[in-house]
Amino acid sequence: MSGIFTVCGCLSVVAVVLITVYMVALGAPGIGKIGVGEFLFGTEWFPTATTKDPSFGILPMILSSILATGGAVLIGVPIGLFTAIYLAEFARGKTASVLRAMVSLLAGIPSVVYGLVGMIVVVPAVAKVFGLPSGSSLFSAILVLAVMILPTIVSISENALRAVPKEYREASLAMGTTRVRTIFKVVLPAAKSGVAAGVVLGIGRAVGETMAVIMVAGNAVNMPALFQSVRLLTTGIAMEMGYADALHREALFGIGLVLFVFIMAINIVLNRIIKSDSKEERR
């Protein structure tokens, strides 16, 4: 069994390495031809322009992706974490079973269904509430993504909280601390790594989501504004890969490489923060 586990672990590492090599091999040439500065910091995206030179600036898509992910995390993480705390510490019996079933159902809903609900419900509601001609905007994308990351955050955070030994709670309560203070000062810090893993996976879901965002964001390559149509990195690839060729196709692979680096950077930063916090606690 030790050998089997070792092989499985090595296969995971090999898969990551192969994906990295593949993305660099296909994405780097296009970025090199366009120019790193023009590609990353250019504000115009006209890859098929005929009346002027094509433009391959993806800064609007980068900023839109960052803001959409950040907004979804800002809304989804507190709701997901509080839901996980309720399920792990307070919910009992049939109430807990029903809520867990609903969370599991949210996790199983296809992305296109989220997009349809967003297009039919969220987009018109945003237009009506804020008096906009169209509700297809960055704000609508944030709302849809916030709901989509909830199942991941809730399920992983709940498992992490339930894994904290009962002795931690009992010791804290025995010292006269209230139950709520015990949860936030003892249980939650003890489950910090598991909760952080849920947040990282939720961020990955938000960054990599395509279908739902296509249906609610408007998909115009604009510098991001909360109530303006935007295009994210993932939607840019999905919408244009079918007809792209030559340098245009290479530029889309370059967007994929930027997206891959973005997700890797998020994982590395969060893991380092968790490890540094763990070292400080040991000291």
Rank of each mutant, 00 (worst) to 15 (best):
V230K: 00
T20L: 12
A174Q: 05
V112N: 07
I120F: 14
A96R: 13
I4F: 15
G93H: 02
V73N: 09
M241E: 08
L11Q: 12
T95S: 14
M119H: 12
K128P: 10
V129I: 14
P47Q: 02
A163I: 06
L106D: 05
M223E: 03
R249I: 13
I183H: 03
V180Y: 06
V213N: 04
S55R: 04
P110I: 04
R92E: 14
K192P: 05
C8K: 15
F253D: 03
I263C: 11
M119V: 10
S137A: 12
A146Y: 08
V147K: 07
E170D: 11
V230D: 00
G3P: 11
P47C: 04
V113Q: 07
T83H: 06
R169S: 10
K94E: 12
G204M: 11
L106P: 01
A196S: 13
V24T: 09
G9I: 14
E44N: 00
M239V: 11
G208C: 09
A72N: 09
L161F: 02
V216G: 06
T178S: 14
V123N: 09
T152G: 10
S155M: 12
I66R: 06
S157N: 06
I34L: 01
M148K: 05
V269D: 05
R205E: 09
I58F: 00
I273Y: 05
A125P: 07
G80P: 05
S278W: 10
K52Q: 14
V195Q: 07
R282D: 14
S104E: 13
V258P: 00
T6S: 15
A101C: 10
V207F: 04
H248D: 01
F253W: 03
L188K: 04
I149P: 05
V216F: 04
I183A: 06
T43H: 00
V123G: 10
G80S: 10
V103W: 06
E250T: 03
A265P: 01
S104C: 11
A28R: 08
